[in-house]
Amino acid sequence: MNEESFASDRRLPCGQRVGELIGYHLDGVPPEFEEHLRDCPHCRAELAEISRRWQPVRRLAGSHAVPSNDLVDRTLTTLRGLRDRHGGQPLELSQEHGKLLIQAAAALSLTRRLSAEVLDDFSGMAVRSCLMADEAVRVDVVAAYPTAAHEFLPEIRRRLVAALHGYLGAGTPDVSVRLADVVPPWDGTGEETDSPPIG
């Protein structure tokens, strides 16, 4: 049974809508429908299929979700990054005729754009976040399974630093690139089959 055949507005040969049967599966079969269900092989087969397909959902709903060990650290880091976008110490760029001050938000925006351009050359990878951490810029990326992301990180960082240097010269901040998450495959064009968590 494909997704189209499972559409809630599809009607069975007896005239019953699949969406109503899904409701009966979730909320219980009303007394007025029980007689029809006893006599209708189409509805019985459809309800059995609905029940089979909902088993993983029920298992997941009944499971206890355990937060990852670094959830608090990731949350606080993200909040610090949001704070830095609205203030913080500017970057100082030494130039021929003096110093140029660049707000962290501008440096982060530039880094994010360049990171996305660099990652265009690495299938199955995307930018999750870009933030200031201890006077350095940290770029977190996500990779679609089974991309060999760890092998690419040094080259991604090298290219990103070179691109930033083209704009900022000697004022290029320290840059780190880390793999933040591995996600289900997506098609790499921005149209996701399973959405990567990109922030």
Rank of each mutant, 00 (worst) to 15 (best):
Q16D: 08
R58L: 11
E4I: 11
V182C: 12
D70L: 00
V161L: 08
G81H: 10
D9E: 15
D181N: 10
L37C: 12
G98M: 02
S123H: 07
V127M: 10
E191A: 13
D73M: 00
E135T: 04
R80D: 06
T189Q: 14
L179M: 03
R138M: 04
S51H: 15
G199S: 14
V142M: 06
T111S: 15
V127L: 10
S195I: 12
D181K: 01
A170F: 03
L100F: 07
C40W: 07
L100I: 11
D140L: 07
D73L: 00
T77D: 00
L168P: 10
R11F: 03
A105T: 04
E35M: 08
G124Q: 09
E96Q: 11
L164K: 14
D121C: 02
I50Y: 03
H97P: 00
I50P: 05
H42S: 11
A61P: 00
R10K: 12
Q16Y: 04
L60F: 12
V66G: 00
R52S: 14
R159C: 08
N69I: 01
V72S: 00
C40L: 12
I50R: 05
A116Q: 14
F6D: 01
Q16V: 12
A180L: 10
G19L: 07
P67C: 02
L168I: 09
E96C: 03
A162C: 06
D140V: 01
Q16K: 05
V161F: 06
R178M: 09
L47V: 12
T189I: 07
G188P: 03
D70A: 01
L71R: 00
A45Y: 05
V175I: 15
G199H: 11
Q103C: 09
E92Y: 02
L82K: 02
E135K: 13
S109Y: 02
R53N: 03
Q55Y: 02
N2F: 03
G23C: 10
E34V: 12
Y145H: 14
D187E: 11
L76K: 09
A163Y: 09
T189W: 06
A61K: 03
V182E: 10
D39Q: 15
V137F: 10
R157N: 09
A133M: 10
A163K: 12
M132G: 00
Q55E: 15
M132E: 12
V142R: 03
